[in-house]
Design a binder for these strands. Structure first.
Lengths: 147, 147
DNA sequence: CTACATCCTCTAGCGACTAGAGGAGCAAGA
DNA sequence: TCTTGCTCCTCTAGTCGCTAGAGGATGTAG
């Protein structure tokens, strides 16, 4: 009895763009969907919930593999939520590191901009700081992305 | 009289990996380099400085196009550094937004994790919050990446 | 009946690399 | 001198998460 909708309506309802929805089906995040006689995909209430779940998780920065794991958990509500918790915790660690790096970077950029006296490139702090890594005080390293 | 070094030594000195250095040459961030008789690239002091500049700028999150612009400025130190300043300012705006988004996201993740009572998936806040977007209070929108 | 919107599949492109195949060059030790 | 083993070369293809476009079929409103 679930009133099925087209991919366009599913896109509006879930906030996931039409080509992205098809892409999710292609990579197996969404199941292969039933079709109309005219070969158009039909989305039921459950599919819309799944799409919204995916979108929200993506917005929270979860990778597709993590979402796959979360969806598998969701499909089987009897099991322990330990895995879900772990995935979220791992993501939190990443996010904290990223914030730390970006905060360091923000300082660096502010320092660069404040030092810029709007003169010639020869004396420009922006160029100078980028050129001379010795000026950089908070090296965070690979992936940390700050200075 | 500049003692030229191999790509491997250039990699060590600059902190840019060997294949990445070759990639930078390919996309024109580095000039085509002089070669030995045996067709090996030779890097002089100026090239090493350029590589270090690129690495540092990349670590600060500048895109390749921005770096191209900065390098062009650097190659011509007589001109006004207005452009460099603008590039840095634009980047600062991005970084600030990104920090704001990530901070919101951090809160969301902490809320999810705190709510998780380590029971069954059926009652798990992690899954629940991801599934129910109504639970999300700080939607930041596209590119902002938070909730 | 005719526009026009929406859908379909398929392929290619984005950014910034990274990985691997398959081969050549080069320095040091036996 | 030869061989071992490292570095180097070019080239292609893969990564991630989409996005864009071609070229065609279907559905709907006037």
């Amino acid at each position: 009895m679930s009133k099925d909708v087209s991919i366009g309506e599913a896109a509006k309802a879930s906030g996931v763009k039409v080509p992205t929805i098809r892409f999710y089906e292609q990579i197996g995040l969404m199941p292969p969907l039933p079709r109309t006689e005219g070969n158009r995909r039909l989305y039921g209430a459950e599919d819309l919930r799944r799409l919204t779940f995916i979108r929200h998780a993506r917005e929270l920065g979860f990778e597709v593999d993590a979402i796959r794991a979360l969806l598998a958990l969701q499909d089987d509500p009897g099991q322990s939520c330990e895995t879900a918790d772990e995935i979220a915790r791992a993501r939190l660690v990443e996010v904290k590191q990223r914030i730390a790096s970006l905060t360091a970077l923000k300082k660096e950029l502010e320092r660069m901009i404040m030092g810029c006296s709007h003169g010639k490139v020869g004396e420009c702090r922006v160029i100078e700081i980028l050129a001379d890594h010795g000026e950089c005080h908070h090296h965070v390293g690979p992936k940390g992305t700050a200075c």
